[in-house]
Design a protein around this nucleic acid. Sequence first.
DNA 1: AAGGCAATAT
DNA 2: AATATTGCCT
Length: 314
Amino acid sequence: MGEEVNLTDYEYSGGNDDRLLWEVGLPDVDDLTPLTLQLIPSELAAAFRISPELSKTMTDVNRASQNTFSSLQRWHSQDMASMNNSYFKPFSYERTREETVTERDETDLIREGSDPRKLRRVESGGTEEADSSLCNENFADDSSAKTPKRSRLVWTPQLHKRFIEVVAHLGIKGAVPKTIMQLMNVEGLTRENVASHLQKYRLYTKRMQPNEGPSSSDHLFTSTPATESMRESSEGGHLRNTNGHMATPTLMPYQPQMVPMPMMGMPNGGHVGMPVGYGGGPPLGFHHHYNMVQQRDWSGNNFGYYHPVASNDK
DNA sequence: AAGGCAATAT
DNA sequence: AATATTGCCT
């Protein structure tokens, strides 16, 4: 309680000394490697057949930062909510500008045949609120009473990402439609939606793993990763972490599989090379020292998962 | 009731 | 092709 740091408003104000408490001891801005720099020299990247990262512009970096914050906020929203206050809404960074034309990868969740603009369903609950930018527009339609025919859900990259995150955090045991739906906390999302998607997801993830090895791989699936913390909440599921710490979307029981399968138009035809020697290795069981894993999911979505090397302390 | 899954429908 | 539905089990 007490002090609350509004991450969104945080900004460096020159080299002043009134740094926030949690900043003490952290490197200065100038000590940090600018994110606009490439981390991997192009020759090195070429040598290892890593597709060279696109050079980042400041807008890229800023956007990434917002992503990160949003993510942290989202996964931390439970705690934040408990501190009452306005509680920032998860995914809602208003796209200030259209920066690069091909770069809008934060589209809203929409249902077929509706305007891309979302409608916000106001909940008076207070403790819980659906992600506004993942919000489903229709819902209402004409839902007077008789024909609550919802239009087909469109699994946008954002939605799918959320899905993946939740599934990953639940582990295969806990990843059942209802729970997933709750934790995703997307307004209008039904259990059926999730079930259907989950079915397909499993199908594809399975398909690309002719993993016949009867022995070692199975028990990895059956573990129970991050379950404990996020259970009980049957109404407004928010993601939290076991320890009070921030939980970056890591700790995945298994890596999202990369399945060669085209899908909805990715804004940027992201050609991010997958980790090289990926021929037929067991797709899981190696969530180890990777700082950043760039990969594609089953449907062609790009994922940049930051893996804190020493993420959660045990 | 809720899951999982295959078949089928839209 | 992507989602939704349905049927039939567990």
